[in-house]
Design a protein around this nucleic acid. Structure first.
Length: 164
DNA sequence: GCCAACGTTGGC
DNA sequence: GCCAACGTTGGC
């Protein structure tokens, strides 16, 4: 039996890697390297090809969900972990003991309208989202299908007084 | 720039 | 195994 699709959210600072950078990448695909948090890593190893992700810009003005992506390659060792010149170097990692994993993500869509954090907070059906939890810092999160779909809908909604 | 929240480190 | 110190995240 096929496993059902799962839904996720990944955070990135647009100054370091934005959704526009993803769109400009070869095949609009990138490896999601540099994750150095065990809980976030565990979520990445649980990802399956075809799973969909919300793409979130943190430390942005305003912070917002800006689009979606798809998992195109499941977890494999993050070799930047044992590169001493890499910003995310981890001396405990090695090719024999990778510790850290990454996945490949392909752009699905840049939202016609980004959905700012403030707007998410105003939606009752999203109140349990990890992203909205006070002090939430996890850079890879699981989201419910319902939450994913709600946010995609908000991004496509026609707003009164919006652009013609 | 401030600061709350959180994860990690290391002394004991 | 506790916990204080420290570094980082990330909204505001």
């Amino acid at each position: 039996m096929k496993t059902p699709l799962q839904f996720w959210l990944v955070k990135t600072e647009p100054e370091s890697f934005s959704i526009e950078d993803l769109a400009a990448s070869p095949q609009q695909t990138t490896c999601w390297d540099g994750v150095r948090n065990y809980q976030a890593r565990n979520f990445m190893t649980a990802m399956k090809r075809g799973d969909r992700l919300l793409f979130y810009h943190s430390n942005a003005k305003p912070p917002a969900v800006v689009g979606t992506a798809v998992v195109v390659r499941e977890a494999y060792p993050d070799q930047t972990a044992w590169d001493p010149h890499d910003h995310h170097f981890d001396p405990k990692a090695s090719p024999d003991h990778p510790i850290w994993q990454m996945v490949d993500l392909k752009l699905e869509e840049i939202f016609p309208q980004a959905v700012p954090l403030e707007e998410l907070r105003a939606v009752a059906s999203l109140k349990n989202m990890e992203l909205l939890r006070r002090g939430s810092r996890l850079s890879v999160q699981a989201v419910a299908r319902q939450e994913f779909e709600t946010i995609v809908k908000l991004a496509h909604r026609k707003r009164p007084g919006g652009k013609p």
